[in-house]
Structures are given as structure tokens and as C-alpha cells.
């Protein structure tokens, strides 16, 4: 730890925001495999936007501004049916509710960054990037390179999504649906999820969450997704506290 000796104030907290090249590269490396899934998924959403009747500029505007695949997909039939804007807004809000949980998890790690930077980091953090980031930095402990690692995940993820979506908007219906391109996104998620279920509580949570999502898939506003996350979390917690109790008994 020779670096510590060079610091004038050794008990100062590590600067999480300073650019840290190894962490940035680690972020890139950990995120790159998922980009193929993101790219394919973005493309599927791009195609769906044009097929539902949006013009090319509208499709491009939607992907660049909204940057939320599941909310975009949920909004398309509403727009096509001429639903009031506030209905589309509320629908998107409900579909996005799981991101509030992600924000509550991730934001405390970055509480000292400037407001603008916090806003944009949060805006860009989707399902896969949050999961990958928390595998690397699960706690609030200030560590050098946290922001660089997150950026290494977010920038390529944003770019891959937009490239995929824009390609989809421009190609429109020429991409055959039976290729099942969206399945690449599902496969990327499998690759992220499998290493996350190394403990029994996490495994139980994931299985229950998946089952609830299937059972509640018919609910409006994608509420099944939110219900699945909530029930999955509660299950994981219940299994965890049972394990702890048992561990105490055996001591």
C-alpha cells in the first residue's frame, strides 16, 4: 500500500469519483458480453416502434429520450389506440417502478457526487448494468474506481442499445420475427443471473420471482413484474433469516 504513504491525509476517504483506468477497463470487460444481448433487444424494440405506426423521427426520438425498453413497448399499443398522454405516462411509470428499487440500492454509494452527475448516472442505469455493478461493489464502502467502473458498464450499454434500436427503426419490418432476436437479450440475462444465485436465499428468491412473473403475466401495467420482484425479495429475506436462526442454534 505504498500509495497511502504518499497521501498527506491518510485517513481521508478514497475518492470514488476520480478516473481510475483499471476500474474503467474492468467495467468494459464485465459489460461487453452482455452488449450482444442489449444490441439485439434494442433492435427488437426499434422494429416494434416502427411497426406500431411511429415515423422514423418519432422512433429515433423515443429511443434517445425514453431509453427504457419495457416502458416503450408498453406505451406503443396505447399510442396506437390514441390514449391520453397521462395514461401513457402513468403506465410507463408503473412499468419502471422496479428502477426505484435499483436507485435506492445504488444511489447511496454515490451520494457525494454532484447532482447533475447523479441524475445522469441514474438515468442510464438499466436492469443488466445495475446487476453487474452490484456484483462487483455490493456495499456502500467508498472505494477507488467505483464511478469509473460504473461508467465502463453504462457507456457501452447505452451505445449498444441505441445502435440496436436505431438499426431496428431504420430496418423496420424487414427483420423476420421468427429469428427470435429478442431471445439474445434473454440469454444475456441468464448469463448475468446464474452467478448471482450462488446462495440459497438468492436462488429461492429468483425461482419464486420467476414463477410469480409467469403466474401474474396477465396483469395490466406489467404489474406482474413488480409483484414478482417484491415477492422474490421477501422470499429471499425469509430464507436468509431462517438460515441465520439455524446457524445460531448450531453454535
Amino acid at each position: 500500500m505504498w500509495q497511502l504513504n504518499h497521501m498527506s491525509d491518510t485517513d481521508r476517504e478514497p475518492d470514488i469519483a476520480a478516473h481510475h483506468e483499471p476500474s474503467w477497463r474492468a467495467g468494459l470487460k464485465d459489460g461487453v458480453p452482455s452488449l450482444f444481448g442489449i444490441l439485439a433487444w434494442g433492435m427488437v424494440v426499434g422494429v416494434a416502434m416502427v411497426k406500431s405506426g411511429l415515423t422514423v423521427p418519432q422512433g429515433l426520438g423515443m429511443t434517445l429520450l425514453a431509453f427504457a425498453g419495457s416502458a416503450q413497448l408498453a406505451s406503443l399499443p396505447l399510442i396506437a389506440a390514441g390514449a391520453p398522454i397521462w395514461v401513457v405516462f402513468l403506465t410507463a411509470l408503473v412499468v419502471n417502478l422496479r428502477f426505484v428499487i435499483f436507485a435506492a440500492l445504488l444511489a447511496p454509494q454515490f451520494a457525494r457526487l454532484p447532482l447533475r452527475q447523479r441524475f445522469f448516472l441514474g438515468y442510464a442505469a438499466g436492469d443488466m448494468t445495475v446487476a453487474i455493478y452490484l456484483q462487483k461493489f455490493p456495499t456502500e464502502k467508498p472505494e477507488v474506481g467505483k464511478v469509473s467502473y460504473l461508467k465502463g458498464l453504462l457507456y457501452p450499454n447505452w451505445t449498444a442499445w441505441q445502435v440496436g434500436s436505431i438499426t431496428g427503426v431504420l430496418l423496420g419490418s424487414t427483420v423476420p420475427a421468427e429469428w427470435g432476436l429478442g431471445f439474445a437479450g434473454t440469454l444475456a440475462i441468464i448469463g448475468i443471473t446464474v452467478p448471482m444465485v450462488a446462495t440459497r436465499p438468492a436462488l429461492c428468491g429468483v425461482l419464486v420471482s420467476g414463477a410469480v412473473a409467469v403466474a401474474a403475466a396477465g396483469l395490466p401495467y406489467k404489474l406482474g413484474l413488480l409483484a414478482a420482484v417484491l415477492v422474490g425479495m421477501l422470499t429471499a429475506m425469509a430464507v436468509e433469516s431462517r438460515q441465520e436462526k439455524r446457524a445460531v442454534k448450531h453454535v
Binding site: 446487476a131 434473454t186 448475468i192 412473473a213 422474490g232 429471499a236 429475506m237
Partner: peptide, 26 residues
Amino acid sequence: QGMLRYAPSCALAAIIGPDLLLDPAG
């Protein structure tokens, strides 16, 4: 906070579950 740790993996499972198990008719 302790409970929220499980949210990302649960959310990912909730996204792929229906895609893997449901047919187009639901």
C-alpha cells in the same frame, strides 16, 4: 437495504421467466 440486495436478481428472473415459459397466447 438488506432486502433490496435481492431486487436485481429477482427483477432479471421476472423478465426472463415469462419469455421462457409462456407461449405467444400467454
